[in-house]
Structure formats: structure tokens, C-alpha cells
Write a protein that binds this DNA or RNA. Structure first.
Lengths: 190, 190
DNA sequence: TGTACATCAGTGAACGCGCGTTCACTGATGTAC
DNA sequence: TGTACATCAGTGAACGCGCGTTCACTGATGTAC
């Protein structure tokens, strides 16, 4: 049943994409390779034709998930009147939609504490993605020195990541909404 | 080998305290009951004399961990000249010490994404602890209407939780320090 | 106060289960001539 | 272009392992009389 090189490459990409979604939905440790491969339309045995270990897939899925968030964030900010870019980004990142759809959400918010305990290559992928996000956000601070803009972006992103994380933990829906809303409002005045 | 009621109660408290530390250090899922009980100086078999399930212990450990952070935070803010309470809290929460000692750190930062996927009773414990923290922080905004102070506290805590989480993920030590530093600086101007 | 018995904290072996990983196998694809 | 052979993506059974949980047992503690 060998597949062509093209098909195999497509399969590999599908596994990574599926993994990013499943890890986001269920967590890294809670997602077994069997379930994951089934979600990608395969049996678990074929996994090691594409990846050396689960850890390797985790790193690639993290990179893919971050890439996706960077694109979404860039799209939200682009074609916006000057100075409202950050607001558009916050509007998207701090939406109840993002809070409730963990499967295609930001890995930093969805897997934060698990990533902190992951191996170096996964954390390096997360770091690279975070820096891209920092860059996108920093560009929204017009007429601001680059290093100051970057410093502000670090804080804005920390606040957004923490807010989404907390909005998912909290059992009171009103409190959850307030965390997102207040953080949005605060960022608008920055 | 039955122990007295007093000893048993002490043992139970020791298990919860040990669990809070071990979950913080290794994550909830990565901490097995055998290792945990051994860390508390017991064998794993006795676990179910004290708790109905691992989930129940997780909820209690989360409550205990939050209680500890609330105390630390209150202590940092007390006996401070007016208006520097928030700064003192940020100084402590955003310290490299807090970042590097996950075992007695804030569960919201150390276990955030795992808590978001935990059962209701654990999330309720996290929520209760979070609200206590919100209250402590809100009290630092002197001469501010209570609801405004609470709103600001939600944002300040989100930023602190996100910053500590990110500072632990990131592989670049300078970036990690900058995240904490810039968030500290930003909160000082709030 | 002393005696007989029930309780139950803690031990250590055992349970089924799902995990990540390995492997023999299949058969279409890719390659060498 | 056609033939023979090597490759290797994907299958499905099997592996050892550690997990959460259960259980028979021990013996000091607590209780009833």
C-alpha cells in the first residue's frame, strides 16, 4: 500500500495539522497517538514512518499552531485605519470565540503550562512563534521607537495570553467574560 | 498500624501539601500517585483512605496552592507605604524566584492550561482562589471605586499570570527576564 | 479501671487499561538496466 | 519502452511499562461494658 511521495508529504502535513488541533482541544499528554492518527484518518502503526517520536510531533505541531495564530493576528491587524490595529488584534484574541475554540486557538494560551514543561525543541518553536507575534503587535504602535514598541508588545501579549487562560479556567461565565472585556478595554488605552 | 485520628489528619494535610508542590513542579498528569505518596513518606496503597480519587486530591491541592499564594501576596502588600502595594505584589509575583520555583508557585501560572481542562470542582477551587487574589490586588487601588478597582485587578492579574507563564516557556533567558521586567514596569504605571 | 472487640490508617501485591514504541508484513511506487 | 527489483507508506498485532484503583492484611487506636 505504498503511497507516492506527494501523498506521503500530504499525509505528514495532515498529521501535524491534526495534532495541533487535538493537542489544543485535549492537551498534549491527554492526546494519545492512536486517537490522533485515527483523527487524521490513519492507523497508529504508520506514525513512525513520519516522526521519530511523539515529542518531535509536539514540537512541529506547536510550530504549526503558532504559525496559524500569527497569520490570524496579522490578518486582523491589516487593512485597518492607523492606530486601531492593536484593538483589532485584541478583539480577535480576546474573543469568546477564541476562548471556546481551543482546537484552532493560540498554543501559548491553550497549552501554556504544558509547553513550559516541554523539551527544548518544543519550547524553541513556541519562542519563535511568540517572537513573531511580538513583532506583529509591536508594529501596531505607530510613531514609537522599536525597542519601546517591543517592550509594550511583550506586556500586551502577556496580558492577552493570561486573560484567555484565566477565562477558560474560571467557572463563572460572567467573570470569564469580564476578564476578556476588561483586558480588551485596558489594551485600547495603551 | 493504625494511626491516631490526629496523626491521620496530619498525614492528610501532608499529602495535600506535597501534592500542591509536586503538581506545581511536574504537572498534574505527569505526577503519579505512587511518586506523590512516596514524596509524602507513604506507600501508594493508603491513598484511598484519605481521598476518593486523584481528581479529588487535585481539587484540594489546587485550593491549598491558591491559599498559599493569596497569603504570600497579602504579606507582600501589607506594611507598605500607600500606593506601593501593587508594586510590591508585582515585584514578588514577577520575580525570577517565582518563575524558577514552580513547586511553591501560583497554580494559575504553573498549571493554567491543565486547570482549564480539569473538572468542575478543581476549576471552582481555582476560581475561588483567583477571586481572593483579585480582592487583594483590588484593595491596592486606593481612592478608586470598588468595581473599577476590581476591573483593574482582573487585568493586572491576567498580565502577571501570562507573563510568568511565558517567562517559563521562552528559551532565551534575556527574553524571559524582559517579559517579567516590562510587565512589572507597566503595572507600576497603572 | 480493665478487658474484649470493632475500627481503620497504612502496607504491599495485584488488577485492567491505555500509553508510546516496535515489528513483520503488504503492495503500490520509484528506479536501474 | 518494458522488465525486475528495491523502497517504503501504511496496517495491525504485539511489546513493556506505569498509571489509577482495588483488596486482603496488619496492628495500634478507639469504644463499649
Amino acid at each position: 500500500m505504498k503511497k507516492s511521495k506527494l501523498e506521503a508529504a500530504e499525509t505528514r502535513r495532515r498529521i501535524v495539522r491534526t495534532a495541533a488541533a487535538e493537542f489544543g482541544r485535549n492537551g498534549i499528554n491527554e492526546t494519545g497517538l492512536s486517537d490522533l492518527m485515527a483523527a487524521a484518518g490513519l492507523t497508529h502503526g504508520g506514525f513512525y514512518r513520519h516522526f521519530g517520536s511523539k515529542d518531535q510531533l509536539v514540537a512541529e505541531a506547536c510550530a504549526a499552531g503558532m504559525e496559524s495564530v500569527v497569520e490570524t493576528t496579522e490578518a486582523a491587524a491589516s487593512h485597518r485605519p492607523a492606530n486601531s490595529g492593536l484593538q483589532a488584534i485584541a478583539e480577535r484574541y480576546l474573543s469568546t470565540d477564541h476562548r471556546d475554540n481551543q482546537s484552532d486557538g493560540c498554543p501559548l494560551a491553550g497549552l501554556g503550562s504544558e509547553l513550559a514543561r516541554s523539551d527544548d525543541s518544543t519550547r524553541a518553536a513556541a519562542t519563535a512563534g511568540f517572537l513573531k507575534l511580538v513583532d506583529v503587535v509591536a508594529r501596531q504602535y505607530r510613531r514609537t521607537k522599536p525597542d519601546v514598541a517591543k517592550a509594550r508588545a511583550l506586556v500586551a501579549l502577556s496580558a492577552m495570553i493570561g486573560a484567555v487562560t484565566m477565562s477558560r479556567i474560571v467557572t463563572d461565565p460572567k467573570l470569564s467574560a469580564a476578564i476578556l472585556q476588561q483586558t480588551k478595554k485596558h489594551l485600547a488605552n495603551t
